[in-house]
């Protein structure tokens, strides 16, 4: 039975496409892409909605709150909303829209979800300490030849390789 759709783009071609999007971002805005920054805006808005005085007194949250700017109406939030819509369009086009938990058959769904939450929490935390994630720090930083971009990239991928053996059951 021939499977329709589902095929991914050639990785080098996809890389070219992603590179052109990144270049367009530099040309239009002077900045590259980002993802964790939008998540930070969600958190800052949430904390600010619960307790505005607290958020404004915090050294961390207060950096992202000002009277003329609402964190949820920021450039990065709209950009990541675009990622959500773009991902959906692409998935619909290629016949990949489906509710699914992806994991190795060796682990249970429950374990996969638990690991996804822990992994997400580590990534979220690390992205704040490291001033950006794979998109904003590594990919974007590498395109401008910044040292920070290369250091973050090597730290992320180096650590993932170093720990891969211990988490192999989750994936293979």
């Amino acid at each position: 039975m021939e499977k329709k759709g589902n095929k991914y783009m050639n990785p080098y071609l996809a890389g070219l496409l992603l590179g052109l999007v990144l270049l367009a971002s530099f040309y239009l805005t002077g900045r590259g892409l980002g993802a964790s920054g939008a998540m930070k805006s969600v958190v800052v808005s949430g904390v600010s909605a619960v307790n505005k005085d607290y958020a404004e007194s915090s050294h961390y949250y207060s950096k992202y709150i000002s009277d003329d700017k609402k964190p949820m109406k920021s450039w990065l939030v709209l950009e990541v909303f675009g990622v959500l819509v773009g991902g959906f369009i692409s998935g619909a086009f290629s016949g990949r829209l489906k509710f699914k938990i992806e994991k190795s058959p060796k682990i249970t769904n429950k374990k996969r979800i638990r690991l996804a939450i822990i992994g997400g929490a580590l990534f979220g935390f690390g992205s704040q300490l490291g001033r950006g994630c794979t998109s904003g720090a590594a990919l974007t930083g590498m395109a401008t030849l910044s040292i920070a971009g290369y250091v973050v990239m090597m730290a992320i991928f180096g650590t993932a390789f170093a720990l891969a053996y211990f988490f192999r059951k989750n994936w293979i």
């Binding site: 998540m39 580590l122 690390g126 989750n170």
Partner: peptide
């Protein structure tokens, strides 16, 4: 930060984007 993110990557399977 990068090391913590790398741990998050192999444990969680994704990055934010």
């Amino acid at each position: 930060g990068g090391v913590i993110m790398g741990g998050g990557f192999i444990i969680g399977g994704f990055c934010p984007g």
